[in-house]
């Protein structure tokens, strides 16, 4: 074999092949999966939707670049994670929010919740949700002013239900104001809430794409949504006048967005399958408890953030039994 020695062989540990997935690829798939939701928001709110998405995406990317530069680390823009965070944050904001608040939320999301913890892979809390909750606590009014295309309103079905019952009676003409189908598709009166909460159908479409591409596993969305459905179903069965029907719990608010895009965030969820199921159960229980008993009409963000904090613990206590070990071996 005299003619084949010029270039040296490459030496590396096994395995020598790879399935071809990458962090960038995963993030790209998430961006693609968010397209239907972005489209639904754009159809609904037009300029405001684009404004918020543009502001959040650009300030997240800028914040990431600035933070990486100041920390003298390699710029990690290429992995697209900052773009995903920006888009998710935008989808978690009400359409009339001023741009400067959106930019502030983006900086908090990227710099405080992500880069100060060490960047992608080291953050404990979902950056987009951290940004949203920061804004919600800092600017409660702006963050709960919802808009229909032709008018400003202050009530979503969940908050209308909650305020009415705080006064002692169910809201009048609830079913007529918000038909379930409209809420699910995000049309007419039903297209309320943050940009990403408008159409559950669009979120579901994106979620199914993520499942088909194996970016996310089915356990977290199913157990999260299932828990909320079952809990609200039980309460609704006990007292239908006092408790909202489970169908409303699914079709309004950020449950689908949270279950398919936020609670499935790779970094801030447990790595073990049992841990992921417990995580989703916890998210579901907390969401329902906050919606039913808490001070806020919506609890998805808080539920996921709280469970983010519990994720390392869940991992620690759900170490699977390795092959060849007895079940009694303790973690």
């Amino acid at each position: 074999m005299p003619d084949v020695e010029p270039q040296p062989w490459i030496l590396s540990p096994s395995p020598h092949i790879h399935e071809g997935s990458s962090v960038r690829g995963l993030m790209r798939d998430v961006l693609i999966a968010l397209l239907p939701a972005v489209l639904a928001a754009a159809l609904r709110h037009g300029f405001d939707a684009f404004r918020l998405i543009l502001v959040c995406a650009s300030s997240c990317v800028l914040a990431e670049m600035a933070a990486r530069f100041l920390m003298r680390r390699s710029l990690a823009i290429g992995d697209l994670s900052a773009l995903v965070t920006g888009l998710l944050l935008a989808l978690n904001l009400p359409p009339l929010l001023p741009s400067w608040m959106a930019a502030l939320g983006s900086f908090v999301a990227i710099i405080i919740a992500k880069q100060l913890f060490g960047g992608l892979g080291y953050n404990i809390f979902n950056p987009a949700l951290a940004g949203r909750v920061f804004l919600l606590i800092s600017f409660p009014v702006a963050m709960t002013t919802w808009a229909l295309p032709d008018a400003v309103t202050t009530a979503t079905p969940l908050s209308a239900w909650k305020t009415a019952w705080a006064a002692g009676a169910p809201p009048p003409a609830f079913g007529e104001t918000w038909p379930l189908r409209d809420l699910f598709l995000g049309i007419r009166n039903g297209g309320l809430g943050s940009l990403g909460e408008i159409s559950e159908a669009a979120i579901l479409l994106g979620g199914l794409y993520l499942l088909a591409r194996r970016v996310i596993d089915w356990e977290i969305p199913l157990f999260f949504i299932g828990t909320v459905a079952i809990l609200s179903g039980i309460f609704h069965w006990i007292d239908p006048t006092r408790n909202l029907s489970p169908l409303y719990h699914l079709a309004t608010g950020g449950l689908f967005l949270g279950a398919f895009f936020m609670a499935t965030d790779l970094v801030t969820t447990p790595v073990t399958r049992t841990g992921q199921i417990l995580f989703a159960l916890g998210c579901g229980v907390l969401t329902f408890v906050i919606r039913r008993f808490g001070g806020y009409p919506e609890g998805v963000s808080f539920a996921i953030l709280i469970m983010n904090g519990a994720a390392p613990l869940l991992d620690r206590y759900t170490v699977p039994r390795p092959y060849g070990h007895r079940r009694t071996s303790k973690p």
Binding site: I10, P15, H16, I17, H18, S21, S22, V23, L26, D79, G118, G119, L120, G121, Y122, D217, L266, V267, T268, T269, P270, V271, T272, R273, Q276, D315, V319, P320, R321, P322, Y323, G324
Partner: peptide, 24 residues
């Protein structure tokens, strides 16, 4: 072959599901 830049672990848990010995 596989030649890639190495990222920090993003804790996605795919290796956990792929491990035939059920390790982490």
């Amino acid at each position: 072959l596989a030649f890639y830049e190495t990222h920090p672990c993003i804790a996605c848990g795919r290796c956990v599901r792929a491990c035939p010995m059920a390790l982490l």
